[in-house]
Simulated scan of single mutants.
Amino acid sequence: MTSPIVSLENVGLTLKSGAGEVEILTGISLDVTEGETLALVGPSGSGKSSLLMLIGGLERASTGRVTTLGQELGTLGEDALARLRRGHLGVVFQSFHLIPTLTALENVAVPLELAGAPDAATGAAAQLDAVGLAARAGHYPSQMSGGEQQRVALARATAPRPRLILADEPTGNLDSVTGASIINLLFDLRAQHGATLILVTHDADLAARCDRTISLRDGRMT
């Protein structure tokens, strides 16, 4: 039997605040199989984005065990976590997180360069073409619309052909028409590479496109 690409065992997350400790997630146990598409849904503040960050090693669990891409994340230092993410895991954020001083081509080339790709610029150009932005390769983020910036972010996340894509409200800052085109593109790119996709969304129609939906409320799976 194939091991899950993501496995969480009784995971909890507690963060400190000025008012004391705040319990963000409690008792989360979840397995995600290779190639699956999974939606994380629930009201604002339910812990969806925090759960996604735990899976990506961008936040550390307070209790329990998180295993991603065959690695138990709690046993890894920051450098090892960075190596795990590099080339194997793509993350798409709501607010794009492009580097403002780099062109679209340079933004997409960054993860390829970090992964040691022999010709990062050529690979980045091909991925920009795949998202319909070949003509915008030399433009900076400030010169592009929100939809174009998110396309660049998708190209950057998928250029290294990651096994796992994490998307946190990828259409949250976009109008409905642009958002729909971004989602279609995200699912197309995932299908082309056979990647596993875990996404956070408030959109019921988008969640329905996934193989499975997990609901959270007050930091617990419901």
Rank of each mutant, 00 (worst) to 15 (best):
F96M: 06
I198A: 03
E72V: 13
M144A: 05
T101I: 02
V91H: 08
E148S: 06
G138P: 07
P43K: 12
A135P: 00
P160F: 07
A207T: 02
Q71Y: 04
V152T: 01
G45N: 03
A19L: 14
S29T: 15
T122W: 03
L38H: 09
S145E: 04
R65T: 14
A109Q: 00
F93M: 06
T75K: 14
G146Y: 10
A124Y: 01
L73P: 07
S62E: 08
T178P: 07
A191G: 08
T196L: 08
Q94S: 12
G87Q: 00
D129Y: 01
V6H: 01
A207G: 07
E59P: 01
V6A: 11
Q150E: 04
A117F: 09
K48I: 03
A135Q: 13
G12P: 08
G47W: 05
E113Y: 00
T75G: 04
D168N: 06
T68C: 06
A104K: 00
T103F: 05
L197H: 09
P160W: 03
D211C: 12
R86N: 15
D211K: 11
L199I: 03
G27F: 00
G172L: 03
M221G: 09
G64W: 08
R65E: 11
T171A: 06
R136E: 09
V108A: 08
A153G: 09
E78L: 10
Q192M: 03
A126N: 11
A153T: 11
G64T: 05
S44K: 10
